[in-house]
Structures are given as structure tokens and as C-alpha cells.
């Protein structure tokens, strides 16, 4: 977290920004269609420091989404607790925002983008609400599309509207459920950088749930790996890559490959990397784009 942008933020940097999110001993079972209760989360505990970006990775079907819904207060844990500072998290507190995977379902087609964003704001006059919503759209580069409908925009733009909505209130914790899974690869890299930029500017804590190990390593301060169901934490990897990160430079950094391998090993249950042991078979460290020098400048474009 060395070089973060300054905190100007729509969200006034408040007391809440200084709190830790604590997930302690959370267990959760869900009833299946046939009526039996299946254990999804088995004793999950971790913490998120103020302003930290934590990625949660795990095999598909591991219960990542259930964990996220429990952290957000959409589901009550069967055992254990989720606390923010001293406060128990229940029923989606105002300082927590969620970005869902499927933007086409999270935005409402009968509302203009501005109204979709403004929906997240309450307790103020209509004028102020619209002003702040317009500001949030501006912030994600969609100021010109406030009067359009979501379905008039591309998938990546729609997810940015969803992001603007998540960030227009006074957000201290942003929770993202595979937020880039429904867009094409190029849009995805742009959105990743967009989120990193906003996170840098606004200073909220963030939890990113993803099944993409590369994305987790690229974005996070720390990656937590879940086992397959019932999910428990099999390990975590601190990501000491420098910031600001850049799709070309960061992903070409040999350290990126190493960290990728460590996380992948945890997720695949290959076992924890033996202390000082042989490097695990790493992923292709090179990015999908050709390493042409002129592309370097585009790294942090919104």
C-alpha cells in the first residue's frame, strides 16, 4: 500500500474508515432443494484492515458467494460473527456496498443511469441526491451517460454504473462478487484498474471474491484461499507487489509469477509451498497483450 493516491473522495473520510472488519468463526449451512442442510462455510475467520484490499479465491462452488453474502449481512451466520469496529454487521449496513457479478440484473432497465445510481442514496433531498449520483457517474467516466438507460451501454460501462452506485454513498467497505466475470478480457483489465484507482482515491476497505487467481494477485494486498465445500481458509498470501500496479509491469514482474504460483497451489490443494522449496509450476507471467512499449502509458487509464 506504499503509493496510494490521495484521499479526496466522495465519501468523506470518516471515523469508520479507521475500523477493522472482523470475520470470526463463521459457519453457515444452506438448505438444498431436497430439504437437507448442506454445510457451506466451515469456520471461516479473517480480518480486513482499514483501507486494505483483500481478495478471496477458491474453487467454483466453494461457497465464496455465501461467504460474501454473510459478510455483507444478507445472510446471518449460523455460528460466529461479523463485526466492524465494535459494531455487529447485520442486514447490510449503510457503510457497506455490494457489487454483484451480473450487472444486467443489478441495474434496473426502467431507470436512467442517474436514477439507478441515486437509488443507493437516501436521507437527502432529491436535488442533492441527483447531484451526488451525477458526481459518482462522473468519477467512473460516465458523466455523459447520466440520462441514458443502462441497456444502451456496453457491459463494461454497465458494470461501471453499478460501481458508481456502490460508491456514491459514504462507503467504508466495498464487497465485490466476481465483479468482472461477465465482461470481455480487455474490458476486464480496464475495470480492474478502475477499481484500483477508486480504491486508491477513496480509501475504503475492499473484499474481492474471484475465481481468477491472476486477478486476485494483481489487485489485492492479501489473498485468502478457500478450500472446496465446506469452505475453510487453507492459507493466505500477502501480495508485496508495489503500487500503483500496472497490467504490463506488474504482471511481468517475476514476483507476480511466484505469488501466483503460491496462491494457485493453495487453491488447488497441491499443498502449501514448502518453506524455501522448489518454485511451483508458475502461470504464464506475461499478460495477454503484446508487450509493446507504447502501451505502457495506458496502464492506468480509466
Amino acid at each position: 500500500m506504499a503509493s496510494r493516491w490521495g484521499r479526496e473522495g466522495i465519501a468523506a473520510p470518516g471515523v469508520r474508515h479507521e475500523r477493522r472488519l472482523v470475520v470470526r468463526g463463521v459457519r453457515k449451512g444452506l438448505r438444498t432443494a431436497s430439504g437437507e442442510v448442506r454445510e457451506i462455510l466451515a469456520d471461516v475467520s479473517f480480518e480486513v484492515a482499514p483501507g486494505e484490499l483483500v481478495a478471496v479465491v477458491g474453487p467454483s462452488g466453494a461457497g465464496k458467494t455465501t461467504l460474501l453474502r454473510t459478510i455483507s449481512g444478507l445472510l446471518a451466520p449460523d455460528e460466529g460473527e461479523v463485526r466492524y469496529g465494535g459494531e455487529a454487521v447485520d442486514d447490510v449496513p449503510a457503510w457497506l456496498s455490494i457489487v454483484f457479478q451480473d450487472y444486467s440484473k443489478s441495474l434496473f432497465p426502467w431507470m436512467r443511469n442517474l436514477d439507478n445510481v441515486a437509488l443507493a442514496l437516501s436521507g437527502m433531498g432529491r436535488h442533492e441526491r441527483e447531484q451526488r449520483a451525477a458526481g459518482a457517474l462522473e468519477r467512473v467516466g460516465l458523466g455523459a451517460f447520466a440520462r441514458s438507460y443502462p441497456w444502451e451501454l456496453s457491459g463494461g460501462m454497465q458494470q461501471r454504473v453499478a460501481l458508481a452506485r456502490a460508491l456514491c454513498g459514504e462507503v467504508s467497505v466495498l464487497v465485490m462478487d466476481e465483479p468482472f466475470a461477465s465482461v470481455d478480457a480487455l474490458t476486464r483489465t480496464q475495470l480492474e484498474d478502475e477499481v484500483l484507482r477508486l480504491w486508491g482515491e477513496m480509501g475504503f476497505s475492499a473484499i474481492l471474491v474471484t475465481h481468477d487467481v491472476g486477478e486476485a494477485v494483481y489487485m489485492a494486498d492479501r489473498v485468502i484461499a478457500l478450500s472446496s465445500r465446506p469452505a475453510r481458509i487453507v492459507g493466505e498470501v500477502a501480495i508485496d507487489l508495489p503500487r500503483p500496479r500496472d497490467h504490463l509491469a506488474t504482471r511481468q514482474d517475476p514476483r507476480f509469477g511466484q505469488l501466483y504460483g503460491e496462491v494457485l497451489a493453495l487453491v488447488e490443494g497441491v499443498g502449501r509451498p514448502a518453506a524455501g522449496g522448489a518454485p511451483l509450476p508458475g502461470p504464464p507471467a506475461a499478460p495477454a497483450v503484446p508487450p509493446a512499449r507504447h502501451r505502457q502509458e495506458e496502464g492506468d487509464l480509466p
Partner: peptide, 15 residues
Amino acid sequence: KARALQLRRWSFYRR
């Protein structure tokens, strides 16, 4: 989604 947006019942129905 309405819960995630902290909508009140009236807004949920109306909007």
C-alpha cells in the same frame, strides 16, 4: 438487491 441498497419497503415497491 433491494436489501443491498437498503431500500425501505415503500421505495422497494414504488421504484
